[in-house]
Write a protein that binds this DNA or RNA. Structure first.
Lengths: 207, 207
DNA sequence: CCGCCGATCAACCGATCGGTTGATGTGCCG
DNA sequence: CGGCACATCAACCGATCGGTTGATCGGCGG
């Protein structure tokens, strides 16, 4: 099975090469530190699976890189392997066409099985990520709605209520209503605290 | 030269082992995913240099782990190898007794030389980190003062001006004055934007 | 079909924030 | 010694935010 690595850290790429060297059925056909390099390498080497970090060397992030890879004709499976487990990251990666989402803290064996499962086209979720998603499905009351996360991300960028309203094509009154709900769900009472609480709880991630 | 690895990511540890395997003068005598495990391993194997990540497996972070290691009798040199390059991280790590500060994105050769330099007791700074520190020294006007960073960190926790004033034993008026200066230096005009700008510019980092 | 939830909007009020002007003291560097 | 940066405080004003109450509408599930 042909594998392509995309990660901006030389140390991590070396680690993956070393770990996967012991797996005879997995062949690493190329690696890249950034999105452009990855797209060229994938076109040249036609891998079955791409192992993708979310923070990349060049300006393009892993989600956008995933989107572009999946837009290729007969695209490879993309398995995200990254440090973060925010709701926003996971949902965006899956929306961009990722087959699975693993964390770098996972034990090597889980990584191997994940790569093989991805090659078969199966969906793969790291235990921690899966738990987060299950909780999100089981207990939707505590989870923020999609709209509320949108508000939070604009909040994190420092936008005023009026600016948020303008960007989302709603009125300031609606923004305030959403904020009250967000405060309640996060257990805070100011916008700044909401941003840090959301970052801590991995609901959003700062750029 | 005896080296000990501390990093919570199995992939990164494998990568370091693989990369350093080619350097005959460097011998890896042990590794750990967390601070407690590291302290036990260091006591047992007596390395010359400890390669330390800042985000660790257990509750203790790399800065605190560094402090504890440097408090040992005849302690090893501690070389920080991490993803982040915030002012706060670097300054805290150095204050805790770190000999050097390298980034995981650095090329392997720089890492090798850094480890050897650390073993000789020399200070090591990654090029990006060094540049940031130099800028901080050369152009103190653009850098935030220590007091302003304190304000920023409380800001990031969501504290209101009154709360910040109470925690720092100053009046609300003074807090507002500091905020105006901070806004000016960061080029923003709201507290929330100041927090995200500070995080983006690596002046502070969220917990 | 009816209830619940999410999303939308309105009007109001007090509290907080952003911005300005002006002032004082301290410590450092040339 | 004379700046200069930093930290501290005061008073003021308009803008924004936080909180509340109440309302409409569409979709989804029992």
């Amino acid at each position: 099975m042909r594998l392509f690595l995309v990660d901006d850290h030389p140390v991590v790429r070396a680690g993956l090469v070393a770990l996967l060297g012991g797996e005879d059925d997995i062949e690493i056909v190329g690696e890249a530190a950034g999105a452009d390099e990855a797209l060229r390498g994938i076109a040249a080497h036609r891998p079955d699976v791409v192992l993708m970090d979310l923070q990349l060397g060049d300006g393009i992030d892993g989600v956008e890189a995933t989107r572009r890879i999946r837009a290729l004709p007969a695209p490879p499976q993309v398995l995200v392997l990254t440090t973060y487990e925010t709701d926003a990251d996971v949902l965006r990666a899956v929306a961009a066409g990722a087959t699975g989402y693993l964390l770098k803290v996972c034990p090597p064996e889980e990584l191997f099985q994940g790569i093989r499962a991805a090659a078969r086209g199966e969906s793969v979720l790291s235990a921690k990520v899966a738990a987060r998603m299950m909780r999100r499905l089981r207990d939707p009351g505590l989870a923020l709605s999609v709209r509320e996360v949108e508000i939070l991300e604009l909040l994190a960028s420092g936008a005023a209520n009026r600016e948020i309203a303008r960007r989302l094509f709603i009125t300031e009154a609606t923004v305030k209503t959403h904020l009250v709900h967000i405060y309640g769900k996060l257990g805070v009472d100011t916008r700044t605290a909401a941003v840090t609480a959301a970052v801590e709880r991995r609901l959003i991630r700062l750029p």
